[in-house]
Write a protein that binds this DNA or RNA. Structure first.
Length: 266
DNA sequence: AAGGCGACCAACCGCGATTCC
DNA sequence: TGGAATCGCGGTTGGTCGCCT
């Protein structure tokens, strides 16, 4: 059984939007607000599919869209976020005010993928452009993509004192224990993923950024790293690991700031 | 001048997640 | 509670433009 199309394509315009269509859509959304995309075209008098209207609005017509070239700062941030998050364009875009996921995705594919991985360019020059290229960044955090309207159920946790999985439950919220626990044999990918997942759980339970919990993500990440190292009998963390953790901490600190200022995160 | 080619990017498509009834 | 409707995401396509030969 085939998938039902999002709308009937018959009699609908496709391809580039005209100025008149843009104006019609903008005026309609100004008056009635976003949402109900399926009904919007009919009500607004547009011969477009609702999905197309949504895309046009989100990627082009929204008043807060930033026009113009990507700045050096933005580019550096995109590279850093892509290293941490992979092809999670909407997440990356969420941290670049006025930029859309589509814009960032296009920018990455046309500019940054070559810059970050010059081998791609080389392969095209050698006439191997059709090959599937390995664009996967190193140590990408693959947490489940979530919207922040839902409470995140955290992965099973390891009791940091006994190193057992017996004491499974949500992170403490009474301020009496560490914000999260870490298994001793965690590798860096799991460590960062576990940290990020716990962060999301705490965010959903409003324990992040609470002054009773000891301040910013950087603070309790530092605390967790310290505890982890102590329990591993002072194993030195490799410098790139420390660097990765700092990157992640600063990213998540940004999330906190936006969360506190009322901006929707994720 | 014109055809070929590649870069760019807006728009489309399919699918998983979420919401609604 | 389950299925339909809707939303949102990421991959892909295709039109346009500019450069090169």
């Amino acid at each position: 059984m085939g998938r039902r199309p999002c709308c009937s394509k018959e009699g609908l315009n496709r391809g580039a939007w005209s100025a008149r269509e843009d104006m019609t859509l903008t005026e309609y959304i100004k008056t009635h607000g976003e949402g109900k995309w399926r009904d919007l075209p009919k009500k607004a008098g547009l011969k477009r599919c609702g999905k197309s209207c949504r895309l046009r609005w989100l990627n082009y017509l929204r008043p807060d869209i930033k026009r113009g070239n990507i700045s050096d700062d933005e580019e550096a941030l995109i590279i850093k976020l892509h290293k941490l998050l992979g092809n999670r364009w909407s997440l990356i875009a969420g941290r670049l005010p006025g930029r859309t996921d589509n814009e960032i995705k296009n920018y990455w594919n046309t500019n940054l993928s070559k810059k970050v991985n010059p081998q791609n360019q080389l392969m095209k020059i050698n006439g191997e452009g059709d090959m599937k290229l390995d664009l996967e960044p190193h140590k990408v955090i693959k947490t489940k993509a979530l919207r922040c309207t839902k409470v995140f159920v955290p992965p099973p946790q390891v009791d940091i004192k006994t190193n057992s999985t017996e004491n499974i439950g949500p992170p403490c919220t009474d301020g009496m224990c560490s914000p999260f626990s870490l298994p001793l044999d965690l590798n860096i990918e799991d460590l960062m993923s576990s940290f990020h997942d716990n962060y999301l759980f705490n965010l959903a339970n409003e324990t992040v950024g609470d002054s009773d919990q000891g301040g910013s993500t950087s603070d309790w990440l530092g605390e967790a790293m310290h505890e982890w190292r102590e329990l591993r009998e002072g194993d030195p963390l490799e410098s790139d690991v420390v660097s990765e953790m700092r990157d992640l901490a600063s990213l998540l600190d940004c999330e906190e700031e936006w969360q506190q200022s009322g901006t929707k995160v994720l």
